[in-house]
Design a protein around this nucleic acid. Structure first.
Lengths: 296, 296
DNA sequence: CCGCCTTAGTGGTCATACCTTTGAAAGCTT
DNA sequence: AAGCTTTCAAAGGTATGACCACTAAGGCGG
């Protein structure tokens, strides 16, 4: 472990000038590193932080952890050192360290389990971005469901286009299974919805672009909340299944244009269906899928 | 403002049982809050929040703040009560409250300024999502620049398609100005880059879909870091400007298909140019544009 | 050999104290 | 009186220390 300490004198405006101890450490390998590669100190390899307010120690912690991730010292599934140790290692207090960890946990990078430890989130299949930030954004700025649908449509059109060119035979087989599942649950809307989602996620995986997949999931998870409220009123599931089959066929036949068009038509139709169902319920058109996670 | 307090007794396992004060308030401008009729179908298909652990007080705080935002009690630009007061109000300690605030700050919803207060982030123009989470994700899972480019291309194609149908004359005029700026700075790559970005953002604004805009900005801010490193080697800016003009013309003439195709060609060409420049530099193809999210 | 129980270890929370920054009010200078 | 400087309270940032709750692994007894 390399420790580097640097004294910076910060002039205070008031008469009382104070010497500020500003120490930051770098460790190249998380626990194992013998070499003491003291480089120059004023080297502000710290620019990862907001330039306007680069003083807060808490953000320094975040920067450090990010650096470790960027370097590859922390990889998905890894466990971080105990907070007390890590705090000492970084030269900050535990609450400060915890703030940083919480921040990283909020964006879905870290995950803490009481009694067990803090872990770098591991990718269950495809990496996913936290949808809460988008959800909050939707509430703050009053995004409409229509806007969400449009975004989803744009993403899924691109995804299905790509998937048509890249899907493996396994993935195509999975799609077929999900469609079979849809037809089998035409009279069970909730079950149908599950197969529907799985189908779309399979396409996303087949697109080979994990970024688009993550973005799609982010939006889909919000729309799902909206959709779940009216799913019991769903009808015309058969028609929906047919459209899914059209998408499937286009992908199987490696026809990107047709896949994109089919997806466009499918989502347009799905949106209209959703709106008509909402109207029936008298529900609003607000996109705030209230996160409804209350402690039982 | 109506405050409602609810005491819940939580039995402790150890000999020493403690009465845990768990109070949550419901704010409402009007007393219109009746029953929250939510049918908790335990569908854990989606992981908005980790289903395993939803009891932590810190997350309770986050839920509270989110609730306030969803309800509209907190609006962009608003200032939160002082931490000490808010902590008492919510019935938690200050460190716990701070954890929640930090988490919300990490996703770009709140912003704290020392000595001033904590504010709900206000949208300067279009709301933007924090790119850091995506950046970390890129590092963790080794996203390639090509993958990023592809995602950007998909988004911008959709955006330009929409923009062709919705751009106002003002927006079109702005686009024209930026293109003029590009031609004027053909010999100044950095300046050119700025006009380039503004042009794309203008199109995004013209698309009328703030979600797609936010997603595009998220990806663009990462690619920007990559691009800045090689921008000084840029050449063929004239060709690039021509392609921008083609996009502009398509939008002005309300031709969505052509706008989309023009954008596709432009970004394909931009990616190839970028790659050839990178190759010259000998730079890697990693998508980890470390840090540097500039505020402007 | 298996299962229950104990026990260290780790994250979660709280309380308190002090420092730094901010912004506005009060006071001084011109 | 206008403008600048000083001062001070308020607010966020950090540190310390303690205790609780949960997890997992190891020891004990059946």
């Amino acid at each position: 472990m390399i420790k580097m300490r640097c004294l910076v004198r910060v002039p205070n405006r008031g008469g009382a000038e104070a010497l500020k101890l500003f120490c930051f450490r770098l460790w190249s390998d998380i626990f194992s590193d013998g070499t003491n590669g003291m480089t120059d100190l004023n080297n502000d390899l710290f620019k990862s932080i907001d330039p306007a307010r680069r003083g807060t120690t808490s953000e320094g912690v975040i920067a450090q952890l990010r650096e470790m991730i960027h370097r590859g010292d922390l990889r998905p599934g890894d466990r971080l050192p105990p907070e007390r140790d890590l705090a000492k290692l970084l030269g900050v207090s535990r609450p400060t360290l915890r703030s940083g960890i919480h921040s990283l946990a909020a964006v879905g990078i870290l995950q803490s389990r009481q009694g067990a430890g803090t872990f770098v989130v591991k990718s269950d299949g495809s990496p996913s971005l936290d949808a809460n930030s988008l959800r909050l954004m939707a509430s703050l700025h009053g995004f409409t469901t229509a806007e969400m649908f449009e975004a989803r449509q744009a993403l899924e059109m691109a995804i299905s286009y790509l998937a048509a060119g890249r899907a493996t035979s396994d993935q195509i087989a999975t799609m077929a299974e999900e469609i079979t599942g849809m037809y089998a649950s035409l009279d069970d809307p909730e079950q149908y919805l599950i197969h529907d989602m799985h189908f779309h996620q399979t396409i996303a995986a087949a697109s080979g672009n994990r970024i688009l997949t993550a973005l799609m999931n982010m939006i889909a998870s919000i729309l799902l909340d909206v959709r779940r409220k009216t799913v019991h009123r769903s009808r015309d599931l058969k028609e929906s299944a047919e459209m899914h089959r059209r998408i499937y066929r286009a992908i199987r036949e490696r026809n990107p244009e047709e896949a994109r068009n089919a997806m466009r038509d499918h989502l347009t139709s799905a949106q209209m269906a959703q709106e008509s169902e909402e109207e029936e319920e008298g529900g609003p058109t607000d996109a705030t899928g209230n996160g409804n996670h209350d402690p039982d």
